[in-house]
Design a protein around this nucleic acid. Structure first.
Lengths: 197, 197
DNA sequence: TGTACATCAGTGAACGCGCGTTCACTGATGTAC
DNA sequence: TGTACATCAGTGAACGCGCGTTCACTGATGTAC
């Protein structure tokens, strides 16, 4: 007889949840968000259609339930940069540092990127997240400058930093696997000052 | 008796079309894109529900059927800037020039902005358009530099220019009506070089 | 260690809703002669 | 100028589809005693 050792509820739930996220991102990346029904996702994940909405309120929301932690420790690292650096240099060093070790995540990030790019609604949702990240940067710059509130310059830092990072990320995903994301981030930050004069 | 002078077909069609666009943008701005049904739009426009899909293939598409012509003559104006200017200066002068006379469009642009911001799918669609505009800028910069294809630097110009313009536009819409968009665009371009060092 | 009950992952079935499509038609405008 | 036909703006009705909700239930896991 098969003895099935009991599966703790939290483990069972985490499994279903992860299976759904994996299934969804792969199907979105391959077939596109709009062409993928929630039923196709549950079929691939091996659960019933109804179970999808037990874990995620909408089809969109499943895409953003994985956090690669890029901005998690941003403020702390940024504020640790030596005072001798300009804000731009400190920003550059921080982003380069955060990008280290992304090689292992490449396949996942590629799938995520393809999934998001497959649908306008996901691009729009990601914009909201990027805006939040830009705000995080703006607030960190404000603190480094001794301001209580980010002013226009701080917010511009936030927007520009995110643009540079996004450009590096896309260049990394489009280019040969051997290149390091950190190097591409550094190159983007290096490129800008010479142009804007 | 009422004599109704015949309405040319093209005129009737243009009227319905414009009425639908006006109704849609106002409802989206007020109630949000997702909370506005196509039927509510047709009711406000004074046509039948079926008529919506005669003019627009999807509910989304109606938002982007008005062109404020911002980028229409961009390349020509940019390439007309004196060779003594740097690329950045030429870009700045071109964007400032294109922004002139936007005061009259303010109410319309405000409605458009609120409509787009009301829904992730519209934000995503607009991103595609902004990406096209960034490409236009990148190609114009490439031509000014005598390149056949935009390189990474040209494309960075495109992305950065669009960010600066979008920031100026939002600042304009959020600020007092008396300020000129052109001045805000100029201020954004002026702010960047001092920061990135 | 064993029993009784509470909790919770997972499911089934039926439904409301709005987008977008399809088929078929009306009546005014446009055009050929 | 008048007649005959073609075109096209606008509509009605019915429908397919997939998202997301609601109600009701099963059976395994977790816990209190």
């Amino acid at each position: 007889m098969v003895q099935h050792l009991p599966v703790p509820r939290a483990v069972a739930a985490a499994r279903s949840r992860e299976a759904l996220i994996d299934a969804a991102l792969e199907l979105f990346a391959d077939d596109g968000f709009d062409a993928t029904s929630t039923e196709a996702i549950t079929a691939r994940a091996g659960v019933s259609p109804r179970t999808f909405f037990r874990y995620f309120p909408t089809k969109e929301s499943i895409v953003f339930h994985r956090d690669y932690g890029f901005m998690r420790s941003f403020a702390a690292v940024f504020l640790d940069q030596p005072a001798s650096m300009t804000d731009y240099e400190a920003l550059r060093a921080t982003f380069v540092g955060q990008a280290a070790g992304f090689g292992a995540l490449r396949a996942r990030i590629e799938t995520y990127r393809a999934a998001v790019d497959s649908s306008a609604v996901l691009v729009g949702r990601e914009q909201e997240h990027l805006h939040d990240h830009a705000t995080t940067v703006a607030e960190a710059v404000a603190r480094r400058r001794g301001l209580t509130e980010p002013d226009a310059a701080c917010r511009l830092f936030g927007d520009v930093a995110l643009v540079l990072y996004q450009r590096a990320l896309r260049g990394w995903l489009d280019g040969p696997p051997a290149r390091e994301l950190a190097d591409l981030v550094d190159a983007e930050f290096a490129r800008l000052p010479g142009l804007v004069r």
